[in-house]
Computed example of a mutant assay.
Amino acid sequence: MSHSLVMKALTVWQPWASLIAILAKPYEFRGRRPPPALIGQRIAIHAGARKPRPAEVKDLIDRLETGGGTPPCLVADIALPFLRRVYEGLTAPAPDSLFGEGSPAPFALPLSAIVCTAVLGEPKAGDACGREFGWSNDSDRDGTFNWGWPMQDVRPLVPAPPARGAQGFWNWQETAA
């Protein structure tokens, strides 16, 4: 017998959604506090349909490797190997073009899918979160993201079930066997 569980979901673009799922992104940054009723509740993290752009991924890799620019709020030891694979997958030739049929398919991120669930923690000021990752008080990003929403007790969903997203929080119905 199966039953359904409805929980709030939040759509996040890739590679950010998967970075949350692999524990490399401890905060989701938003311009406002989350609804108080959701703090301490488990939410679903939905990877949006937008494919990541190679230049954006390369910029993240460069900032993590060199420390140049504003450092992203990522756990570098986890994020860097992952982002390198994502970048290679985004820039690899199609499997049937250069190496012929049967060559391995490039690494690809799930899109339009629930990649994990997490407990939404008590929000923190974005600049306080940034200082945990090396931001200075004169960072050019100060005030850009007013709130860091802690992603706690993250549980990846493998395989990632497909889902249509929406802006803001929306209801996702998980079916369990």
Score class of each variant (00 low, 15 high):
residue 48 G to F: 01
residue 71 P to A: 03
residue 108 A to D: 11
residue 46 H to V: 06
residue 134 G to H: 10
residue 39 I to M: 07
residue 40 G to L: 10
residue 80 L to V: 06
residue 158 V to W: 12
residue 24 A to K: 00
residue 91 T to Y: 09
residue 88 E to L: 10
residue 173 Q to V: 13
residue 23 L to M: 14
residue 87 Y to Q: 03
residue 68 G to K: 15
residue 40 G to H: 10
residue 35 P to K: 12
residue 175 T to G: 06
residue 51 K to D: 10
residue 67 G to F: 02
residue 84 R to E: 14
residue 167 Q to T: 13
residue 41 Q to R: 13
residue 75 V to K: 12
residue 136 S to R: 15
residue 13 W to T: 09
residue 31 G to L: 07
residue 39 I to W: 06
residue 35 P to N: 11
residue 19 L to M: 07
residue 72 P to A: 02
residue 97 S to P: 05
residue 135 W to C: 07
residue 173 Q to K: 14
residue 80 L to C: 04
residue 131 R to E: 14
residue 31 G to C: 04
residue 112 S to C: 09
residue 65 E to Y: 11
residue 81 P to R: 13
residue 33 R to E: 15
residue 47 A to F: 05
residue 95 P to N: 07
residue 30 R to N: 05
residue 6 V to Y: 11
residue 130 G to Y: 05
residue 59 D to F: 02
residue 6 V to D: 15
residue 128 A to P: 04
residue 90 L to M: 09
residue 61 I to F: 11
residue 135 W to V: 10
residue 171 N to P: 07
residue 138 D to N: 14
residue 58 K to L: 12
residue 63 R to C: 07
residue 140 D to Y: 14
residue 65 E to Q: 11
residue 165 G to D: 01
residue 168 G to E: 00
residue 139 S to P: 09
residue 76 A to E: 08
residue 150 P to S: 11
residue 94 A to F: 15
residue 7 M to D: 02
residue 117 T to M: 00
residue 50 R to V: 07
residue 40 G to T: 04
residue 114 I to S: 01
residue 106 P to E: 02
residue 164 R to C: 08
residue 44 A to Q: 00
residue 8 K to F: 04
residue 53 R to S: 06
residue 82 F to T: 08
residue 155 R to Y: 03
residue 163 A to V: 00
residue 134 G to F: 08
residue 70 T to N: 13
residue 11 T to C: 01
residue 25 K to H: 09
residue 54 P to K: 07
